[in-house]
Amino acid sequence: MKAENNNSKDTQERLLVSYILSAAWFVGLGGLHRLYNGKIGTGLLWLLTGGVLGIGQFVDLFIIPNMVDEQQMRLRAKAGLSPLGVPLNQPAVAAQVYRSPQEKLTMELLRAAEKRGGQLTVTQAVMETGANFAEVEAVFKELLKSGYVKIDNDPETGAVTYHFHELN
């Protein structure tokens, strides 16, 4: 919302300056508004021909808003912003900020368990997250205490398996 307000203000200011520069035609300086809005070639032509004998200058009174919008879009694109002023080439979702390494590891474990149907062994967790066994076991113990997981042994391998009942 704030970016939109700033963009609108910038556009209004550029529009006002463009009309003021357009009025410079009355003192023999036609085309300054075109130079200001990045239209260098036609700006010089207007400057040298008195706004194409005043006809081009008059027509520009109606198209200055479009010139301003085009220039604003060019300036935003050059600055790496979208037409609305939002930064481009940014991830669609902002990177998650974690309060602690344990919180980050917990989220990684949840994602790994989700991929495996809500079940995860300590070894699988270590392989998925890159954390060491002690760190993974500490997080599992906290999740067990809080009731988010239950613990069981795999009937075939006997491996201790943590079941994330909400992810089944």
Results as ranks from 00 to 15, higher is better:
46 W>N: 06
66 N>D: 12
77 A>Q: 11
95 A>T: 11
69 D>M: 03
95 A>I: 04
107 M>H: 11
72 Q>L: 07
105 L>G: 02
60 D>K: 02
60 D>R: 03
41 G>V: 15
56 G>C: 09
62 F>T: 12
36 Y>L: 08
69 D>C: 00
45 L>Y: 06
79 A>V: 00
59 V>C: 12
51 G>Q: 10
94 A>N: 03
58 F>P: 03
101 P>T: 07
70 E>D: 15
38 G>E: 06
46 W>D: 12
105 L>M: 01
45 L>E: 02
62 F>P: 01
101 P>R: 11
95 A>K: 10
83 P>N: 05
85 G>R: 08
93 V>T: 11
37 N>F: 04
73 M>I: 11
62 F>Y: 15
85 G>S: 07
84 L>S: 14
48 L>H: 01
78 K>Q: 13
83 P>Y: 03
88 L>N: 05
91 P>F: 03
34 R>I: 04
66 N>E: 09
35 L>N: 09
78 K>F: 07
94 A>T: 11
67 M>Y: 13
37 N>V: 08
80 G>P: 04
56 G>H: 09
65 P>F: 06
79 A>M: 01
36 Y>W: 14
106 T>K: 07
102 Q>W: 01
47 L>T: 03
73 M>E: 14
97 V>E: 06
100 S>F: 02
97 V>T: 10
95 A>H: 04
58 F>M: 15
64 I>P: 01
49 T>P: 05
77 A>L: 10
96 Q>V: 14
101 P>W: 01
99 R>P: 00
38 G>F: 04
81 L>N: 00
103 E>V: 00
80 G>R: 01
43 G>Y: 09
60 D>P: 05
47 L>D: 06
71 Q>P: 00
71 Q>W: 07
54 G>H: 12
51 G>V: 11
104 K>I: 00
84 L>W: 04
93 V>F: 09
102 Q>E: 15
48 L>Q: 02
83 P>W: 03
53 L>A: 15
